[in-house]
């Protein structure tokens, strides 16, 4: 996808680089945090349409809360788990030195013409397309694992 974005001619090199970073970090997390622990369907759904300027990723993994509860047992809600995931340098694979990917994703999306919808459990992260800050709230329904839409 990164090379295709680079070759479209409609996107700057910077945006192509950062979109690839965002999609890759989120997609890699699905595998890194579920390997050996897939509740049912392993793997991720990954699709993109450059003309429509949308990227979608989804997995049926354990979700952010269950992953982070391994190191933060006091996390009780999906909303709190998403807040920790996107603001703190912490990893469900502690004591490995990890946990910085979503912080970078947030910084990138908040400062560039990229929008992000990230759902896990009944938590929802929304960062508007066009520079804007992250908002985390409860969603209407439950998502098992994660579901992500990236707009650009």
């Amino acid at each position: 996808m990164g090379i295709e974005l680079q070759k479209t001619g409609h996107l700057s090199e910077e945006l192509a680089s950062l979109l690839t970073l965002v999609a890759a970090e989120i997609g890699d997390n699905s595998f890194a945090h579920n390997v050996g622990n897939w509740p049912d369907v392993p793997g991720i759904f990954y699709a993109y349409d450059i003309a429509k300027r949308v990227i979608v990723l989804a997995d049926r993994g354990r979700g952010v809360k269950a992953t982070l509860q391994q190191v933060r047992p006091n996390l009780t809600t999906d909303v709190d788990a998403l807040r920790v995931a996107f603001t703190e340098i912490v990893s469900g694979r502690d004591p490995e030195k990890r946990g910085n990917g979503l912080k970078v994703v947030r910084n990138v999306v908040e400062s560039k013409e990229i929008g992000l919808l990230f759902r896990s459990g009944i938590g929802l992260v929304n960062i508007p397309t066009g520079p804007g800050l992250m908002h985390i709230k409860m969603a209407d329904g439950n998502v098992r694992g994660t579901y992500v839409v990236i707009l650009f």
């Binding site: 090379i3 890699d28 910085n100």
Partner: peptide, 10 residues
């Protein structure tokens, strides 16, 4: 290089 993710680089 087009993209290096934080995870790879770290």
């Amino acid at each position: 290089v087009l993209t290096v993710t934080p995870s790879w680089l770290d």
